[in-house]
Amino acid sequence: MPEPILRLEAVGKHFGGVVVLEDVSFDVRAGSRHALIGPNGAGKTTLFNVISGVFPPDEGRVLLDGLDLAGVPSRRRIGMGMARSFQNIRLMPHLSVVENVMLGQHARPGLLRKLKPVGLLPKSRERDEALEVLDRFGLDAYRGQVVANLPYGIRKKIEVVRALMAEPRLLLLDEPAAGLNSTETAALRDFLMEVSARGVTLLVVEHDMPFVNSLCEHVTVMNFGRRIYDGPAAGAREDEAVLDAYLGTHHKKGASDAA
């Protein structure tokens, strides 16, 4: 069994008196496509914030490649191979699409590279790379536009592209399919499959279960800040606790919607 790329050890987090994460432990295997699911308010986004260093855990440890991240500033983590997207889109509103994507290259090493007048050069490796990924995502037409004016689904995709630009080994995606239509969701799934095939580990928070089932082979389920399931995706669909806490109600909700 290879060393996990990401290991959570008894992670706990509370805000004031409210316990949001409690004793959360699981491993993310290098190269895997791993889903993190659970009802609203389960603590999934909070866990992403702890992993990416937005705030430290109150208890427990986060290890990247076996290295304890305590004391590693959040801004250094992207350079260590970990990039993320945000549930509530956090693109830079005054930057163009391609500029937002190129911001994803910021953590790459090299001071000289940071002094290159990319914005004035008609052609540069940095811009070409960004344009290439935008192209592959079908976002070419938006490259020069300011993101504030773009539709939700488009901005959601740009977030994924920006995170990818950092060339991460571990990609954390917080509800990447939210707000996408079924065609776009399918395209996103295919694209993430491709990303995965290139060796990038995926940890994906998502409510869209068909998307999760078709993308991820491993699932961790959370409820009320606790891990209630961690194992193969197929197993989660038969697990009592998971059905009770999440999938069951999910299906019931779907049924009542249909009724």
Binding site: R75, H94, K114, A166
Partner: peptide, 20 residues
């Protein structure tokens, strides 16, 4: 330059610029 881009990113969203 990428530094100028980073300046504008800090202007727009400090926490996200940090994570970038």
């Amino acid at each position: 330059t990428p530094i100028g881009l980073a300046m504008r990113a800090v202007h727009d969203d400090e926490p996200v610029a940090d994570l970038m």
